[in-house]
Nucleic acid binder design. Structure first.
Lengths: 141, 141
DNA sequence: AATTATCTGGATAAGGTTATCCAGATATCG
DNA sequence: CGATATCTGGATAACCTTATCCAGATAATT
């Protein structure tokens, strides 16, 4: 459903949100979110370019959420790195259809819309609970 | 959301359902569903192996739905070629979680479940309407 | 200024999905 | 039986996503 990239981006954002606006390095985030360091680096870059976080170079640097990140939703994070592709025109290339999708694609797009709405209604903050964990065992690993 | 393969499989099954149990060749299906011929060939093979359709070789051959295909749902077709991967255990590899997902993954899996339910509640038959089309222009293309 | 920590970004590799090609098996028709 | 139509399935290529490597830029600390 979500690409690996989107999944990683969400984990990183949740992890960042956990430390309440404070800076965290790529290393810390990678360790916490269990994301390959160098790959996460690219993803954080995308999130920075999308304006969701800011990177600070040099010693003591790291990433922190921007002002815009308050009330940030799952959908916004996903959209920043790997947007859900809603079906707007007939995938068969039948231009004649216009906005009038075949029953099949209408159904598929409806499902996507449901997901989109669910993600738009979920803030990153609402997902914060002992980093990723609801139980104690998490950080014992 | 769906892989290309799943999308193609659905188109082919809808197309097949349109001809009401009659055999259609890979060529016909490929043309109708706008799927690359040789790739569709593989997909039909998977659907056959899953028992949703039967292939008949030789002149006059083709594919037709099996008995099991009556009442067939979108979910069953998708599952035959490229199952939705529900989240059952913590993707971070935290075995300690067991069935107890982090808030993030609980949310994502809930969305997937919604999709799954929607697909399970939609039969292929219900999607049949002038092949893929609700309008006349379709087959003019 | 030198050292160290950190992000930035280019190059490249590894792996999976999608697409194509084609030889072989099988069935029908004449 | 020979020709033709069709599925079957292996090999391979094209492409995209994911992952890794590493040199450079920038900032803090000593």
């Amino acid at each position: 459903m979500l690409s690996q990239t989107a999944e990683y981006a969400l984990r990183a954002m949740v992890s960042l949100a956990t430390s309440g606006g404070q800076s965290r390095t790529t290393q810390e985030l990678a360790a916490d979110a269990h994301v390959p360091l160098d790959y996460l680096s690219k993803i954080l870059n995308s999130l920075a370019k999308a304006g969701l976080i800011t990177g600070q170079r040099g010693r003591g640097g790291g990433f922190h959420p921007t002002a815009r990140a308050s009330g940030l939703t799952v959908l916004e994070v996903v959209s920043a790195v790997d947007p859900l592709k809603r079906i707007k025109t007939c995938p068969l290339g039948l231009a004649a259809h216009g906005t009038n999708l075949c029953p099949l694609h209408r159904k598929i797009d409806d499902a996507m819309q449901t997901v989109e709405v669910a993600f738009a209604g979920t803030t990153i903050e609402s997902l914060v609970g002992k980093s990723f964990c609801e139980t104690e065992e998490c950080h014992a690993v």
